[in-house]
Amino acid sequence: MPAFADILPTLPAIDHITALTLHNAAGEQVALIETKPGSSGSVRLYHALWLQHGCINHAAAQQGLALYAEHTADALAFPGKHPNIDRLLAIGPNDALSVQLVLA
């Protein structure tokens, strides 16, 4: 299984994005993920999921967990250590988060 560091360069570039926001069904912002050290990989992954699925739904979340590779196992072992993975773990079959890009 490829490592997250090997998967990341295969995802679409995010040079035009400074952050993305996630919103629940009521339209409330539930997360802000900024393009900065420590979270830019998550912005790239969430952006790729959004491009493919149009939102972060259960299917997108399952794909994202596979793409996070070894970090998903670490998130399962240490809840709270990886909030962007924890968020995907919490998305159920009837859940979906909309995505808004903050452009550079």
Rank of each mutant, 00 (worst) to 15 (best):
M1C: 07
A3R: 15
A5M: 11
A5E: 15
D6S: 14
D6K: 10
I7A: 09
L8W: 10
L8S: 05
P9D: 08
T10L: 14
L11Q: 05
L11V: 06
A13C: 03
I14G: 02
D15V: 04
I17Y: 01
T18K: 14
T18H: 07
L20D: 00
L20N: 01
L22Y: 00
L22G: 02
H23V: 00
N24R: 05
N24Q: 04
N24A: 09
A26L: 10
A26E: 14
G27M: 05
Q29C: 06
V30L: 05
V30Y: 01
V30W: 02
A31Y: 01
L32I: 10
E34H: 03
E34G: 00
T35L: 04
G38Y: 03
S39D: 05
S42A: 15
S42P: 01
S42L: 03
V43R: 01
V43M: 06
V43T: 08
L45E: 03
Y46T: 04
A48Y: 10
A48F: 10
L49E: 05
W50C: 01
W50K: 01
W50H: 14
Q52A: 15
Q52F: 03
C55V: 11
I56D: 02
I56L: 12
H58S: 09
A59D: 15
A59P: 04
A60S: 06
A61C: 10
A61R: 02
A61G: 09
Q62G: 13
Q63M: 10
Q63Y: 00
L65S: 11
L65K: 13
L65N: 07
A66M: 12
L67S: 06
Y68C: 10
A69I: 10
A77K: 15
P79W: 11
G80C: 12
G80V: 13
K81Y: 11
K81V: 12
H82D: 12
P83T: 13
P83A: 10
I85V: 12
D86M: 09
D86E: 15
R87Q: 12
L88W: 06
I91Q: 13
G92M: 05
G92R: 09
G92I: 03
N94F: 08
D95S: 11
D95A: 13
A96L: 04
Q100C: 03
L101S: 06
L101E: 09
L101V: 06
L101Q: 05
L103M: 14
L103K: 15
A104C: 11
A104E: 11
